[in-house]
Every structure is written in structure tokens, then in C-alpha cells.
Write a protein that binds this DNA or RNA. Sequence first.
DNA 1: TTGTAAGCGTTATCAC
DNA 2: GTGATAACGCTTACAA
Lengths: 333, 333
Amino acid sequence: MNQPTLASLAAELQVSRQTVSNVLNFPDRVRPETRARVMEAIERSGYRPSAAARALRNQKSMALGLRLSQHRNGISGTIVDGFMHALVKRADQRGYRIVLFPASTNDEEVDKLVGLRRSLAIDACILTDTWYGDSRPADLQREGVAFASFGRPWDGDDHGRWVDVDGRFGAMEAAGYLRGLGHDRIGFIGWDDGSPVGRDRREGWAEALDLSDADADLLTVEGEDSVLGGAEAMAALLERGADAAVCASDSLSLGAFTEARRHNRRGVSLVGFDDTPISRTLGLTSVRQPVDEAARVVLDMVLAQLAEPETQFSGVLVQPDLVTHEPPDFLTD
Amino acid sequence: MNQPTLASLAAELQVSRQTVSNVLNFPDRVRPETRARVMEAIERSGYRPSAAARALRNQKSMALGLRLSQHRNGISGTIVDGFMHALVKRADQRGYRIVLFPASTNDEEVDKLVGLRRSLAIDACILTDTWYGDSRPADLQREGVAFASFGRPWDGDDHGRWVDVDGRFGAMEAAGYLRGLGHDRIGFIGWDDGSPVGRDRREGWAEALDLSDADADLLTVEGEDSVLGGAEAMAALLERGADAAVCASDSLSLGAFTEARRHNRRGVSLVGFDDTPISRTLGLTSVRQPVDEAARVVLDMVLAQLAEPETQFSGVLVQPDLVTHEPPDFLTD
DNA sequence: TTGTAAGCGTTATCAC
DNA sequence: GTGATAACGCTTACAA
């Protein structure tokens, strides 16, 4: 049996296919009783309008491109992962599909996006993992591909079509929380990869504690973004007399936690970033990224752009919040 | 400026659009010099055939549907995540795109898939996270939607269109490895959710060690699949005299590891599952799932089905392997 | 080897 | 309120 089409339904119902089309797109234009009859037939037959025919006719695919990010190791990829989830859900609610594609470099990503756009496989795209000197926004703009980015442009022109999480604010909250707990030597454990995200968080920490540059340097240890890196950094911080630390990630926080326990330093307090399952399980405190809100805003931006290409945008910072978890029994004895 | 089309290119080059089409689809049918001229124009103009027009004409979208799995917490979602990566990459190589969609129940997943298929938004789909009583294969078969599944059908009809990792074999390897290390009371730490995957792994462990049912029960502790669960289970196993354990996941393995260290039981050896970043970082041994191979086979299956709907398939088990990692310095002192 | 014609399923436009 | 017509860009016959 063949799929029903507008034409086959129309023939069956003895109306023109245009009427059937109208029932779907402009229900008011059609007389209630005709509408009901058509609706019933649509339901019964399981008819779905052909996305391909619609795309061809309307010159839009109702799909958005998203590169499958590779930095997604189990722990620190969690934000991108959560963002993707939220994005897929929200896009679906608005009738858009998310099309995934692989790319190993930013240039390849842009090439593929341009290709997808030209072939009408996507209408626009979402960027993640922005970095220094990220040329994707400029490239896409030049190629006329609509986009919005989860992650701000860290240098160059501010194209305004971005949403980011205010990591600086999150770090400030974290530092304030630790100070409220009575700590007075609060360190910072970060990455040594020159990441702008890490810089941002460190600045928030230093500002909240009103540290001099010298003090900030003294209380900062940067290493690899891993459990090991966190442990090593914590060891160094403990030697420098720290009694708490803001960690730029939950991996680092977990490492620091392990190390503090190893030294039997129960009084050490930590705050990590991203509220990953690890944090939740071990009862660590963490800065939760509002990925759902970020996804909503990114989607709004990109769809607004599609509706009105000349729209001017300005970047949006969403505020993270601090999440505390109960430590499990096996850690409190 | 408008997108170039077959027609616009043909007009520009003074050939028929058929010739341009042939250059793309049947290059041999066209005289080399004409071909070169056409190719050049295609390159220069950045022309891409419209996916929508192709889909409409060929009645296939060159896209595969994939539900964005929700079980993907940072640690144990890693396999599905890795699988998705591999799948997207391989699909891309074969000219297929992966379309993501959200669903909170299996029924919703089937509904959406049927809808996507009817609307020609996808040609087929990939299922993951199979479970007892999973009706998706039967439902999709009834609706005539082609699929292949990453995960075997644990009960009911064997539709044959699945690939799975031989967890039983992996657990046997793990147990053999621990025995080779000189351990003789090797426990099993599993999940208490009745997961068929967990059962399968436990059977492998028991078989490799040739345990009686009574011994197997004695050396098995099942709890929640979390770090906490692993720690609790390890505590129980230590009391029962175990000196090593096969863990059904890396979360459990991490918990067990933490617990063993807490008791200063350095001699305890562990093997986890999935070779997650945590395992890698802490130098734990783990059973690595060959997700890339699984993705390849799933894709082969589903594309074979598209090419020849009547093909009969039989399920494929791929073999995992044991991965050992060097423990980091901070754990060996 | 190249050109012509028809049709995939939809919607915008305009007539009725 | 409803219906006819054309067009979106491509491919597959078939004719030249």
C-alpha cells in the first residue's frame, strides 16, 4: 500500500487537494464541516505531509545543523550534552529537527554547514565550543548561513548571536558560598590550557574574594582538566595553607576531593562546575549551568534570524546557580 | 544572489540540465571535456544539489532517525555516546545524515519514528537501549519502518536486526584477568535493577570462575548503579573475604575503588565496564566496548535493509576487550 | 553523447 | 469557501 498524499486524500474525499492543504495550514479558510471530514480522513489514513515536498516548495527544511562535538568525555562534556538534549527537545516543540554531522576541525565544520545549507538540508545551525580566534561566526556570516552560538566570541567582532553562561558570576557565587562557610583561604583550581572559560571563572573567584594579583596567583593552581590534575592541584593548595577551593570543573573537584580525604582533611570545602553526576553522587557542591535556558535562547535567536535576517542581536548571559548535595552515608562516617 | 540550480548552471553553460545531472550521477555518460567544463562550473559556483528535490524525486531522504537517549548520565551514558559518535561519522561517510529527536517513552519514540518516516524525513532508524518486553521492533516492523538496533532483543521474537556487545564474554575476560593476577576470591558487583545486560555480565563472571550457584550468590553484591552503590557493594564484598571484583560498570568500579582505598586494601584488584574517562584517569582496568564496530554493523544492517527490504538478518555479537591503564602517580605513592 | 518531457507532493496565487 | 494552475529542483525514461 502506498503512502497517502494530498492528492490521494483529495480524490478520496472528492475535494481539491488545495482544500486538504488548507485544512492543515489555514484551517479557518475552510468550512467547519469540510474541515472535520478532511481531518477525519487524515487521522484515519495516518497521512503526514511530505517533508521533502514542503522543503522544496517552501525553500526551507525545518532542520538545524549541529556538529557532534568531540570534547565530550564523560565528565566535562556533560554541559554540551545537556545543552544538546534541551536543544533537541525545544527544537522539536517548535517543529524543527536537529541534524547531526561529524567534523574534526572548525573549517570542516564550516564547510559541511555551508554544504548542508546550500543543499537545503538545514536552514541554519547552532555552534558550540567557541574559542579564541574562532572564525566560524565570520565564515558563516560571509557564506550567509544563519547561526547562533552557545558560547560567546572571546575575541574579534561581537556578532551578538550568542548565549553563554556567566561563569564569572558562577565562580563569584562559589567563592561567596565558601566564605560564608567560614573559610578564609579559598584557592582556585583551574586548567592550564589557556581556556577563556577558565580565565573567566578565575576572575570571578578573585573578584569575589577581593584578592590582590599576588594573592590570587598564590592561591591558584592550574593543571590538566582531569581527576588527577585536581588531586595534584589540591596537594599544592594544601601546602600553601588553603582550606577550600573553587574548581573550574567537577573532574578537578573530584580529584581535589580525593586528595583532601587522603590527607584526612575533612574540613576542606570544595565547589566544582557543571553539577555532573559525579558531584551529585559524592555530595559535592557545584555550579549548575542553566543549559535548558541557554538552549531556549539560542533557538529563539536562530529562529528570529530565519524569520527576519536583518535582526540585530546582542549576546545573552544566563546565570548559573549553586547546587549543594547531601553527601552519601558512606562518606560521612 | 540566488542559489545556483541544475537549470541555472545548464543555462550558463549552454548545455541541457540533464547533462549537468549526469555529471553528478553518471559521470561516464558524459564526454570528458564537457564533464570538465561542468565540474568547473559546479566548483566555482558552490552548487549543491537540493536535498529536498532529491528526496522528493527519489522518495528517500538519506537520513536516519535516532532518539536522543535520556539515560546518558555522565558515566554510564558513555557507551551510547560513543556509539552515537561512531554512528554519525560512519553514516556521514555513506552519505546519510542522522536526525535527532526527543522522546520520553518508547511509545512516543515509535510514534515519532512512524511520523518521520511517513513524512519522508527519515528512511529508517536506529534503536538503542533495548530492554525486556521492548515492543519497538515489533511496532516498527508492523508499521513498515526499517530499523536496526544497538542492543539485542532480550525476549520475544528475535528479529535478527541487532548488534550487541558480548558482555558475557567481556565479564569472562575480566574474571580471567583477575584470576591471572593471582586472586582467588573474585566478587561481582552489579545492578539491582534486573537489567538483562547486568545478568549477562554476571553469568560470564560466574562461568569463567566455574562457580556453583551458592558461591556465585555469596560473591555477588548488587546495588544502585552509582559510585555510592559500588562503595557499599565493595564494603560488603570485603567482609565476605573477596580480594577482587568484576564490576558491571565503571561507576561501580570507581565506588569500589574508593572503598578499597579507604580500608587501605591496596591489594584489591578491580575491573569495570565501558572504559570511561574515569577509569582511564584513575588507572583502573575496564572492559572496552567496541562501539565503532557496533556502529558500522548497525549501519550496514539498516542500509542493507533499505536496499533489499526482504533481507533476512541475524543478530551480531561484537567482542569487547580488556583495557588496562597505568595508575597515575598520585595513587601509587 | 546529449536533449526533452513528465512527475515526485506541496503551497501561493488567482479565479470562481 | 473552494478549485485550477504553476512552480519549487531534481531524476528517470525515452527520443534525437
